[in-house]
Design a protein around this nucleic acid. Sequence first.
DNA 1: ATTGGTGCAAATGCTTTGCATAAAG
DNA 2: CTTTATGCAAAGCATTTGCACCAAT
Lengths: 131, 131
Amino acid sequence: MRITSQREIILEELQRLKTHPTADELYEVVKKRLPRISIATVYRNLERLSEAGMIHKLEYGGRQKRFDGDTSPHSHVVCVRCGRISDVETRDDMEILDIVVDSKGYQILKCGVQFEGICPFCQERSKSKKD
Amino acid sequence: MRITSQREIILEELQRLKTHPTADELYEVVKKRLPRISIATVYRNLERLSEAGMIHKLEYGGRQKRFDGDTSPHSHVVCVRCGRISDVETRDDMEILDIVVDSKGYQILKCGVQFEGICPFCQERSKSKKD
DNA sequence: ATTGGTGCAAATGCTTTGCATAAAG
DNA sequence: CTTTATGCAAAGCATTTGCACCAAT
């Protein structure tokens, strides 16, 4: 995979952000360093980088995909209100594979725990707006 | 929630199918019983039914959402090749909450294990086509 | 020099919406 | 009779793609 400044900066900024940004959020950040970059380049590189295992594509929750520059094994919580994703600190996740009784012929490659909840921001919003 | 024949049949067919269909797959099935139904009605009802907790919306994997008429607690495997989703039989999932060490202020509502793998169909396809 | 990547704009595909009509309670 | 749901077509939005140009090796 050829190293271009676009690819380098996209990876760098994604690894720096701890917010699991969507493609367009990351695009806005990268644009500050590369004002002429196209959103298509961001999408293409996020795809390539995740194929290469250098980042993770998070497909749960909401319409937009989110991306994670941290590929170490960890779990996520997704806010059911706003779609925000945060890391959840857990004890060793991998023992979870032990709970499988029947995987219906699938060859299992990966497993993870996924949590859904309400993020601190949305909890706060509920208190003040009573919605 | 008003009971219409559309809503009734959509729920009935989704509960009958064990395939976690996409909205358009379910539309095709429902159309056999209600030839004049609109895809918009299918989408609207799937939304309403999942808000009401009568079905589950599965948002992981691929572009299309999938739906599950079985709301009992269970885990899923998603095929990374074709997006197909199957149930995974596991021992009691809920003990998984015990692994949480820090949930970053989120109020956790739900948790589940998610597996990714390759389904039997795609495994077979690989053998014959060697791709 | 060759191959792969980029920017742009147009296309795609899934999902949602506005609106007039129809059905449910 | 009032309210909610439906069908249709159009709009929306995130993502992908075709193509001519450019840059990395």
